[in-house]
Amino acid sequence: MSILVDKDTRVCVQGITGRDGSFHTKGMLDYGTPVVAGVTPGKGGQEVHGVPVFNTVQEAVEATGANTSATYVPARFAPDAIYEAIDAGIKLIVAITEGVPTQEVLKIYNYLKGKPTKMIGPNSPGIITPGVAKVGIMPGGIHKPGKIGVISRSGTLTYEVVDQLSSAGLGQSTCLGIGGDQIIGMSFIDLLPLFEADEGTDAVVLIGEIGGTDEEIAASYIKSEMRKPVVSFIAGRAAPAGKRMGHAGAIIAGGTGTAEAKIKALEEAGVSVARTPMEIPDLIKQRL
């Protein structure tokens, strides 16, 4: 069991003929992910690692039954590719692209309202259901199938945490990075209910960081709605205010978005907040 990515997932790679798209298509195929189609306008008819390339997402969906898109399209063209996937009826868009203009993502966010499509990212490392499929750029080998759900705003920090979990014998149901940008598709608050409802998930690890108030919003949901234990780590306690820490969304602005405020809100909601990623496995074991 898992969320969003399962045995019915059929992936279409947008931007498959590009350097990143092609490289990560191979990585996804090596992991056993059913990558059924690729899309690059004007390059229909080609093949990349044996995957057929189409000119449009619509054609790819009709010919292959693709229901999930992994988007590696360069930032300035990514919004167009995302609208195309939405209009073609793709169920889950995983936007890997970094650097999409914020106002463009804001428009996409509002366009998605009321539509069946869900979007992870942009600036996401992707989503993986260990042993089933990975849609993204994370190293597959560190993951083990199991019953811990992982949601994160980060990439490599998530790998660090997953590695700690797997080493401690705690496999994962589904792990995903929601993206480091200011405006993103699905937030913690959209994903926690899916993990809460998933029979294959026993506990959730929530990895947050400075900037915005998504962790505080998640905390109020956890407090009132969640029965499954949640363990968290928040990055950026040592970060100065007013400076962007790598991720576009990781900035303490006008006193909002500090690690302290997030940790306090989460602890008040009954979440165990780890001081280091290394503490996470033990905290989970205590709560299970």
Binding site: S152, R153, S154, G155, T156, L157, T158, E160, G180, I207, E209, I210, F233, A235, G236, R237, A238, A239, M245, G246, H247, A250, A259, R275, T276, P277
Partner: peptide
């Protein structure tokens, strides 16, 4: 460090 999240965490743990 590679990655913004891990880089922030590295700073945090140096301090810790």
């Amino acid at each position: 460090v590679n990655g913004a999240g891990l880089a922030m965490t590295t700073m945090d743990i140096i301090k810790l």
